[in-house]
Amino acid sequence: MARVITITSGKGGVGKTTTTANLGTALAMQGAKVAVIDADIGLRNLDVVMGLENRIVYDLVDVVEGRARLRQALIKDKRLPELCLMPAAQTRDKDAVSPQQMIELTNQLRQEFDFVLIDSPAGIEGGFRNAIAGADEVVIVTTPEVSAVRDADRIVGLVEAAEKGPPHLIVNRIKPRLVSRGEMLSVEDVLELLAINLIGIVPDDEAIVTSTNRGEAVVYDQGSLAGRAFLNVARRLGGEDVPFMAITDQQGVLEWLFGMIGRRRS
């Protein structure tokens, strides 16, 4: 049974596209057939993060409007033959697609893939509605900041109202050193506030900058903390019970353990 999972956030710039690219890649590395869809119409980005921008001929709107067949618009990943990207249209706006069309599109993709990951635009309006329309599950990304957490909570309410089941949470860009000094919300704080199921903790990591520069997923960089964190999220999505890793700060002086959080997950 295919699973359609939308990655969303409320606040912009917290890491949805980075998460989609890396989870898609990680799931494909683990042997699944994966399609990633860029639903951020007008602000196409997933293609450049995955290094596939030169291969685009058709896009999501072309498919929805019947100018291209699904197969023609799906771009194969450079390294992983079982990973495909459906790019967003760059010259149209969010109203070019309706929720009903998104449902039809995802239903077609279900036939051929194990996972369909949808990269949602920021916000709580049309683009977000389109992105969750065809989803079975929702992953909410937040950073440990007041505005991002607040917006994530709005999304939690909307996801629950849309009856998508309990959303999963990824806390991205954690800076362990700041957390241990009490100057950044901890994962536990965020969990306590949002009260949803944690599926990933991703540290703020320079490796994301360098791999994004190259158009490669950071999960290929197995030495990087962010890469390992995303690989773990992918395994948890697959149903494995993977303990949350200890994120040690750069100087290795202060350790940051997640045993308590691990036990909190029910």
Partner: peptide
């Protein structure tokens, strides 16, 4: 107070007000 604590308390209020 540590800023994380302040952030947490402010969020605790603003989230319920929003809801």
């Amino acid at each position: 107070d540590r800023s994380a604590q302040v952030a947490k308390e402010r969020l605790a209020t603003v989230l319920v007000d929003d809801r």
